[in-house]
Design a protein around this nucleic acid. Structure first.
Length: 649
RNA sequence: GGGCGGGUAGCCUAGUACGGAUAGGGCGCAGGCCCCCUAAGCCUGUGGUCGCGAGUUCAAAUCUCGCCCCGCCCGCCA
């Protein structure tokens, strides 16, 4: 017998037993919830119900009396997986028939193998998961890296759940920053990148920002002397200027040739600012020369991104250019459509969207989790110069996404909560409330550095590449130290698996709503609660299986009497429930948590009990089956996390 | 000022949707374990006003209200 969800089977039996018993006891109200939960300790069984406390309130009877009465009504012989039911202190505790339950769990894992745990949903949807979408202006920083890891893990969860999932990258090529780089790139004579292209363009971005900012601030300062500006204001400008001058010194030191050439070229322009603005305008308008230029720069950066992300096992099904929506009239169509609603008005020369009025008219405050008296800020749709803003274009993009999918998940930092809300309100205004309701803003918290603030414009950041490189290097040292007998080739391979796994795990492991402070310690953790720990557990299981002779004697699961054996089986049986919860409620970190807990059980088992040498044979075989099951489940969990499961390390 | 998110031992963290039994881990610190399938491991110990205060309840880390601290947002940036 196999089950896609062994613990679920047991849970169903307990539920049925409870309902049955309740029906037999007179004068009891039918409770809406059975309150079946795993008890704090195995001594209380595998599942326990606290519903007698609720019933006690309603009937005026004592909880422990009710519990005893109900427990007595349950005839365990009617159920295959329940061996006994005990009433303790008002709780009703259910004990699993362990040999049967172990046979069901371990048998199912063996049978389902790479499918075990991935219970498919009855009604699958088509999904678009938009994630990463890092602006192509500099290398991906460690601060941004949480996004692709979370997004990719969510996509893996949903796919395994049976949904049809497309992973989209939204390329933010419209906007001032792209114009800044294009300007610098042009001034340098469209140089061929030295080194990794995203790093190279990142340098141009910082250098160009730096040079133009210094010029701008200097001019501003000159004006202040003419116009009698308060000293406070002057000091503020001076402070900004000083900061940029520091950056300039850094840049000149690190990239003297490039920086000097750029400075020289830019100084030839009377007003660099207006050239940049003109580039931005021309790009959005789709003027061919600018199109070619900016696309060329973006493509270079994306090439670098693809390389970085592929190291983490992260890939995309679609690369969506923001500019395409401007050029194809989809953005202007959205603006026209919005103009026809009562929610758009002109103020001076700009077009504003009255998000507050939509929220009120459609009675959405409660739905969006807002107070009635909260006023949603309005959103500017079009600038005075006729160019559009990010969220405006995002409305067009969202409409496009919903032509391709029933549900859309935007993996976007929580700092954009307001913008995402305004986006939804715009969809309502366009009579696409259905889209808004199928749009999930998966908001995650920031990754920060301890002590100082990352600034991508100023070039002060730790790149994702650096972190991956360092982790791989550290892993190599560890592998060499711990497994000196491995071949050089194996060492290289394992250190990559382990190092990159450690990085990915450290970003996936924490509840996404919590802020993360980046420390090397967190990422370079190769001990407990880390990818290497899970990988090591997996490798240990593989090692036993490798060394064991093929099982010939029938396993006897009744011989698995040690508490740790039972706890390991129990943990294995719960993987499907954990997976369902993680997929349906978008909780990628709970898979990491689960895999870590399972590894804990397995390592305790490993240290305590022999497998191959265990006597009698049916016990040895039973343990071998258990080890095999741990191997399978750990590997499956690691696949969801996008982490490789090595057989040796 | 308003909104959103977070606050669990010295540090990091699970649990909060749907209230249940002694709040589960890890790092650190102190000590112990390779006769034995990989010591990236195992065992023992140490450490908690679950931000604070009320309330609801037989029962609150979890629900309600008020307050405090941290972060982010409230742009003709993205």
């Amino acid at each position: 017998m196999t089950s896609t969800n062994p613990f679920g089977e047991f849970r169903n039996e307990c539920g049925a037993a409870l309902r049955d018993a309740l029906a037999k006891v007179k004068h009891l109200p039918q409770p809406s919830l059975l309150s079946l939960n795993p008890p704090p300790s195995v001594e209380f069984g595998e599942l326990a119900s606290s519903l007698c406390f609720d019933l006690a309130k309603q009937t005026g009877k004592k909880p422990f009396e009710l519990a005893e009465k109900i427990a007595k009504m349950i005839d365990v012989s009617e159920y295959s997986l329940i061996v006994s039911v005990k009433a303790v202190g008002g709780y009703i505790n259910f004990y699993a028939d362990f040999p049967k339950f172990a046979a069901l769990t371990l048998g199912s894992i063996k049978e389902l193998d790479e499918k075990y745990g991935f219970v498919e949903i009855e009604k699958p949807y088509t999904f678009i998961v938009e994630h990463t979408s890092v602006n192509p202006i500099h290398p991906i920083t460690i601060g941004q890296a949480r996004n692709p890891v979370l997004g990719d893990t969510i996509a893996r969860l949903l796919r395994a759940r049976g949904h049809s999932v497309k992973r989209h990258y939204y390329i933010d090529d419209v906007g001032r920053q792209s114009a800044v780089i294009a300007y610098g790139y042009l001034k340098l004579g469209k140089p061929k990148p030295k080194g990794k292209p995203d790093h190279f363009i990142g340098i141009i971005y910082t250098a160009t920002s730096c040079i133009t900012e210094i010029q701008r601030l200097k001019k501003q300062l000159e004006n202040t002397t003419k116009t009698n500006t308060p000293t406070e204001e002057k000091q503020k400008i001076q402070k900004q200027l000083d900061e940029w001058i520091d950056v300039a010194a850094e840049m000149e030191d690190k990239h003297p040739e490039l920086f000097r050439k750029l400075r020289e070229e830019i100084s030839k322009d009377e007003d660099p600012e207006s050239v940049i603005n003109e580039l931005n305008r021309a790009y959005e308008a789709g003027e061919p020369k600018t199109k070619t230029l900016i696309r060329e720069v973006c493509e270079l950066v994306l090439e670098g991104f693809k390389e970085s992300l592929s190291r983490m096992g992260i890939f995309y099904d679609s690369w969506d250019w923001e500019s395409s929506f401007s050029w194809s009239n989809e953005v202007s169509n959205v603006i026209e459509a919005l103009k026809k609603t009562p929610y758009v008005y002109s103020e001076k020369d700009v077009l504003e969207f009255d998000a507050e009025k939509v929220a009120k008219d459609f009675e959405l405050k409660k739905k969006l989790g807002l107070r009635d008296d909260y006023k949603v800020p309005s959103l500017t749709l079009v600038r005075a110069d006729g160019t559009t803003l990010y969220t405006t274009r995002d409305v067009a993009y969202s409409l496009w996404k919903f032509k391709k999918a029933q549900k859309v998940i935007n993996v976007v930092g929580m700092e954009q909560t307001l913008a995402q809300m305004q986006l939804k309100l715009a969809l309502y205004a366009l009579k696409h409330g259905d889209y808004a309701e199928n749009l999930t803003h998966f908001a995650y918290n920031l990754v920060t550095l301890p002590g100082y603030k990352m600034s991508s414009r100023k070039g002060h950041y730790i790149t994702f590449d650096e972190v991956m490189d360092e982790a791989t290097k550290r892993a190599y040292e560890e592998v060499s130290k711990r497994s000196p007998d491995l071949s050089e080739d194996e060492k290289q391979k394992i250190s990559k698996t382990v190092g990159l796994g450690a990085v990915r795990y450290s970003l996936a492991e924490v509840d996404p709503t919590k802020p993360v402070v980046f420390t090397w310690d967190r990422v370079l953790n190769f001990e407990k609660n880390s990818a290497p720990y899970l990988q090591y557990s997996h490798a240990r299981a593989c090692s036993i299986l490798r060394k064991a002779a093929k099982p010939t004697i029938k396993p006897n699961f009744a011989l698995l009497v040690d508490p740790i054996e039972r706890e390991t089986v129990l943990s294995l049986s719960r993987f499907p429930e954990t997976f369902i919860d993680a997929a349906d409620n978008l909780k990628p970190h709970s898979i990491a948590d689960y895999a870590n807990a399972l590894s804990d059980k397995f390592n305790t088992f490993y240290a305590k009990l022999p497998v191959i040498k265990a006597k009698p044979e049916p016990l040895s075989t039973a343990r071998l089956v258990l080890v095999e099951a741990v191997r399978v489940v750990l590997r499956n969990a690691l696949i969801i996390l996008g982490i490789e499961a090595p057989e040796k390390m």
